[in-house]
Amino acid sequence: MTRAFFVPFSFFVGLVIAWQVFVVAAAVPEYLLPSPLVIVGTLDKSLLTEIGYTAGEALCGFAIAGVLAFTGAILFVRFRTIEQGLFPIAITLKTTPIVAIAPLLVLWLGTGWWSKVAAAALISFFPVLVNTVKGLKAPEADFQDLFRTMRADQFQVFRKLRIPYCLPYFFSALKISSSLAIVGAIVGEFVGAEHGLGYLIVISSAHLETPAVFQAIGAAALIGISMFYTLEFFEKRIVFWIQLETE
């Protein structure tokens, strides 16, 4: 481990210590701002169950979105009419806030698993679609001319040029969407659920059980970080020839 790890790590530890000292010194009531020690001390195994729900919904929605967006992007680039017809609709849907749609999803799909999966999929779909379309179109005209001089058909152009060329764009979009998927799942749980971190946050804050709210927030962040780094692990191996900036 290097400086790149130790510097942010030390700052994080410093902030947590400052937080602890502030809460104790200023005698802040626990329902307003619990100290780090209280948050960690009241951790319960039941949190794992809630993490399981939210992570499962987010992952499932994310996977569905990834597959659909990738397939959709190929259809968009291959058939311009589909792109012309659907892209404006896609952009409109993309600019509609997920919070506005979530109640509808719960109404249609119930308070169970699928309404959250749908919310997660919906919110993570568009960045992947847009970026993948961009990547599929990215090979410069000379590359396409090269394939024409080799008399490649459309299928070969996709298989041997466009799809590999778009993978860096696809992965950077997946990394952005992974955190969005968790937002989608939690928003879905806010609206109506019996489980999950979103449900935990709503219930606990209503009962002023603030430490549990913080635990849920921390857990959501952990899911996001693990998804991000898992994707980065695969990205480095699959898209070994390039590292597009993802931030």
Binding site: L146, M150, R151, A152, K160, L161, P164, F240, I242
Partner: peptide, 18 residues
């Protein structure tokens, strides 16, 4: 215009593959 995910040899065989 070499494909960056292919080695020299893999790039060279591309016309034959196509």
């Amino acid at each position: 215009l070499l494909l960056p995910w292919r080695t020299t040899l893999q790039n060279i065989v591309l016309p034959a593959e196509i």
